[in-house]
Amino acid sequence: MSYYRLFRGFFRTIFSLVFRWQVIGREHIPKEGPVILCANHISLWDPPLLGSGIERQVFFMAKEELFRIPVLSFLITKFGAFPVKRGAGDRAAIRSTLKLLEEGKILGIFPEGTRSKTGEVGAGMPGVAMFALRSQAAVVPVAIIGPYRPFRPIKIVYGKPIDLTSLREAKAGSDTLKETTDLIMAEIRSLHEQHRSKVSV
């Protein structure tokens, strides 16, 4: 058994027993080919939750400082994380991400760039749009509905892939990036609003 499957099994046990997780929309994840999972961000638990809800392995960007901590670096690397410099245009991370998608893998990303303090879905950063437009990946919106409290339900909802055909055919530029980002965030927000009132207690 790979380290990833081992860690995923561990987190699935935690989410099932401690947080009574509810997973919706697994069927919307393509069984093969590149995928970008775009989720709102409310907790440090979000990356393992995002990856644990589906069968295919999910890869994540993580701030490079985490890779300087020996044990943590080993764990997050085995769970599919790779380093990125925050607040800068990290070309190596961009190349790694695009290569990962070219290889038909799944990228998990949190477009807001930071955790929401209110639990509401905020504005997105343009990085996710760049990856979406420069690849042919299926872009799947994901809503994480919390909060994470012991023995209270946490819900993760995988939505249908977003149709970006017209935006990919449009002339590249800041307007296209903004429109793509806004569309992705709107889909996440819609899922969040649709399902947060349906969390069973």
Rank of each mutant, 00 (worst) to 15 (best):
D182R: 11
Y3C: 01
M185I: 10
R26M: 13
A123E: 15
N40F: 10
V157G: 04
L167N: 01
M125R: 15
T13S: 14
K198F: 08
P153N: 09
E103S: 14
G51C: 09
G33R: 14
E179Y: 00
G87Q: 12
S200R: 15
K117T: 14
V58G: 09
W45K: 00
P70A: 04
V58E: 08
F131N: 02
S73D: 03
G108Q: 07
L191W: 13
K63S: 09
G53F: 06
Q194F: 09
T176H: 04
K171D: 15
R149Q: 10
I184N: 07
F151S: 02
S52Q: 08
I54P: 04
I29C: 07
G80M: 05
M61K: 03
R12E: 14
F131G: 09
Y148N: 09
E64Y: 02
K117G: 13
T114D: 10
L107W: 04
I162G: 08
F60R: 00
L107N: 05
R196C: 01
G119E: 01
L101P: 02
G104L: 07
S116M: 01
R149I: 10
L167H: 04
C38I: 00
R26W: 05
E27P: 02
F151C: 04
G122W: 00
I69S: 00
I184K: 05
K99G: 15
P70Y: 08
K85G: 00
G25T: 12
L6H: 04
P34M: 12
R56F: 11
T180E: 03
A132L: 03
G113A: 06
L17W: 14
W21T: 12
L98F: 07
F110L: 06
Q136H: 15
G146M: 03
E32V: 07
K160P: 01
R91G: 00
I154C: 03
